[in-house]
């Protein structure tokens, strides 16, 4: 497959993932739409291109691990895992419902393919450090990806963990920072600016890569560069648009923690070239 064909393949998967995210959040009636949509290309790049993983064998010991630290973006992870075949797509109908395997925030004990339970921000990188140190003790070559939000960088524990990753030279770790510039209450610049965020991570001893987080060629190149980096952990600061692909949600600070209304869903599905709810759904 040529590079262009691969990018086209990933773009089509991303389009379908966005449709799944919107439909499942609409059905659930609550959840975090904006931060799910901003992370789609990053997750699709990992699960459909970069990660060594086996959806039929979620506990395969030699798999690469994605630690989804920005737990509120769970619908994006759920849609991608379902499309990989970790569980039937029908599970998405029961998102956030009593007895479902897809909790409001990721639960590793309930959902195949979920590596860590999350929801409270700031925990993922430190857990990745422990896993990476254990892999080093065992001489295992697999890699660890941590999906982090920009608001999450306001948590003190992130910086504790960032110090440790660099101290132990954990080059098996790559953070993907979903830099969508919006946190729960408003634009981050109004609440608590984290800039210059690249300089901060660099000062903590990290290899910092900067990309457009919706551009597949840039994402794939950065993932390869991060893997090639020796002696330092890497962070890919991915500039993204919150709510990407669904115009009612795009760059809207009012839509951090809400699901689509009927009208918003209809408009978004139209923009994504999807059939309205109830028809044309992939099994």
């Amino acid at each position: 497959m040529s590079d262009a064909q691969e990018v086209a393949r990933l773009q089509e998967i991303a389009r379908q993932v966005r449709i799944d995210i919107l439909k499942m959040l609409h059905k659930a009636g609550s959840g975090h739409t904006g931060g799910s949509l901003s992370a789609v290309e990053l997750l699709v790049s990992l699960y459909f291109h970069k990660l060594r993983h086996r959806p039929a064998d979620p506990q395969w010991p030699d798999r690469d691990r994605l630690l989804f630290s920005k737990g509120h973006g769970a619908p994006a992870l759920y849609a991608v895992l379902a499309r990989c075949g970790y569980y039937p797509a029908e599970e998405m109908q029961r998102l956030r419902k009593l007895g479902g395997i897809l909790q409001g925030h990721p639960d590793r004990m309930l959902t195949p393919g979920v590596e860590i339970s999350a929801g409270s921000l700031g925990h993922g990188l430190a857990m990745a450090n422990g896993m990476a140190l254990a892999a080093r003790l065992d001489g295992k070559p697999y890699r660890f990806y941590v999906m982090m939000s920009d608001g999450e960088c306001q948590e003190g524990e992130v910086w504790e963990a960032a110090m440790a990753s660099a101290h132990y030279r954990l080059d098996s770790i790559c953070v993907l920072l979903d830099r969508n510039h919006i946190q729960n209450d408003d634009f981050m610049i109004k609440i608590r600016d984290i800039e210059p965020i690249r300089d901060k991570w660099a000062a903590f001893g990290w290899n910092v890569l900067s990309i457009d987080g919706h551009d597949f060629p840039q994402i794939l190149k950065a993932l390869d560069e991060a893997e090639a980096c020796r002696g330092r952990p890497s962070i890919i600061v991915a500039e993204t648009v919150k709510g990407k692909g669904a115009s009612p949600f795009e760059n809207s600070p009012k839509h951090h923690g809400v699901s689509p209304t009927d009208a918003e869903l209809e408009q978004a599905l139209k923009e994504l070239g999807a059939q309205p709810e109830g028809g044309g759904r992939r099994a």
Partner: peptide, 22 residues
């Protein structure tokens, strides 16, 4: 592993070890 004066990541790093079977 001496994590420094970092109690939060101390506990979460241990969780990572446990997830890896340590």
């Amino acid at each position: 592993f001496n994590m420094g004066v970092c109690e939060q990541s101390l506990v979460d790093t241990a969780c990572g070890f446990a997830l890896a079977g340590k």
